[in-house]
């Protein structure tokens, strides 16, 4: 005769499943309890709570935005502008940091002593200075040393560089001098530039180390084999070494991309309207700290999970190709 309880005890997997269900349930209950408790406490203390404010007009302007944003539009759209601004600077910085990191990592391994020394020095310096200091340095360097908008540098036709930022031809429009600075064409502010330079310069130093470690992990014989086949060092790097090194580089690089995205929240220090900056302003206009902070956490968690998923997919693809 079958005894269900003994059956249950024997089946390790179903047992584990039940325990996990129990733990997940307890965790959810705890979260629910905390949310309830916070809400009740806020109500008794006369502090408005809830997410209804997201549909009220924001009432403040945002300095730069990918979307058109007007102060009459609701808070949720302001948050969206913040997310897009964060994504804009994070993606640009990831691309720039990757390119820079690859070059630096490869050059740390050249036989040219001067080049190698310079690259090593870069990595050591940029890796060991706190990012916030680097950001502030870039920002005040740009704001302090660039000429004012009336006397903008004009290094290329249609390209203007000044305290108001970098203006460049975009969408068939060429920028020209206006009342207050340069108008028309595409433009990025000094805040964006400082953040981009800071994030990518800092990220590149870490990525360079990952690239160096990845390349060094490929057995020396592979390089010799490539040379024996008559490949130049560069060809060998591209066709033999990098494809093998890449598989080892992707997981730590993912970590770096995640860090870089989260570090973009330091934007508030240099006046770039990223998600944190918008959330700060909203928090102050509405007084709803718990709600604004939970939106912030949810968005950064979501972005991190998405980045992890994307690089995870790429990693699995690389692994399949390798075998």
């Amino acid at each position: 005769m079958r005894r269900p309880f003994a059956e249950f005890r024997r089946h390790a997997s179903s047992r584990a499943f039940c325990y996990q269900l129990l733990v997940a349930g307890l965790a959810l209950a705890l979260v629910w309890l905390l949310v309830e408790q916070t809400g009740a406490e806020l109500r008794t203390r006369g502090i408005r709570s809830g997410f209804a404010f997201l549909f009220e007009p924001a009432g403040f302007s945002i300095g730069e935005s990918v979307l058109d944003f007007d102060a009459a539009q609701p808070y949720w759209r302001a948050f969206l502008v913040g997310v897009l601004n964060t994504l804009r600077v994070a993606l640009a910085a990831i691309v720039l940091a990757t390119v820079l990191g690859l070059c630096l990592g490869a050059c740390s391994l050249t036989r040219n002593v001067l080049l190698r020394g310079l690259c090593r020095a870069y990595v050591e310096v940029f890796r060991n200075i706190p990012l916030l200091l680097q950001l502030l340095t870039w920002y005040f360097l740009l704001a302090e040393k660039l000429p004012s908008a009336d006397a903008a540098l004009n290094p290329l036709p249609g390209v203007f560089l000044s305290k108001s930022g970098l203006a460049f031809p975009w969408g068939g429009e060429v920028p020209a001098a206006g009342d207050f600075g340069i108008a028309g064409g595409g433009a990025v502010t000094p805040e964006f530039l400082a953040l981009l330079l800071g994030l990518s310069g800092y990220g590149a130093a870490y990525l360079a180390e990952i690239v160096r470690a990845g390349i060094l992990s490929v057995p020396r014989g592979q390089v010799d084999a490539a040379a024996a086949l008559g490949m130049t060092p560069l060809q060998g790097l591209r066709a033999v070494v990098l494809p093998q090194a890449l598989r080892l580089m992707i997981p730590p690089a993912t970590n770096q991309f995640l860090n870089l995205t989260k570090n973009s929240s330091l934007a508030v220090a240099v006046g770039y309207p990223d998600l944190v900056s918008i959330a700060n302003t909203s928090l102050n206009q509405t007084g709803q700290a718990a709600e604004c902070i939970s939106i912030l956490m949810a968005v950064y968690l979501g972005l991190s999970l998405l980045t992890a998923a994307a690089t995870g997919w790429y990693n699995r693809r690389q692994l399949r190709r390798g075998h």
Binding site: F60, S61, G63, L136, V268, A269, V270, G271, S277, N284
Partner: peptide, 30 residues
């Protein structure tokens, strides 16, 4: 950031039918 001034700034210029570009800093010193 975190002041009533951000909203006033917008209200005033909107009433004038104009726009402004605020550059918002977290710290007073910055």
């Amino acid at each position: 950031s975190g002041t009533t001034t951000e909203k006033n700034l917008n209200d005033y210029f909107r009433a004038q039918g104009a726009k402004v570009r605020p550059v918002v800093f977290e710290s007073f010193e910055a």
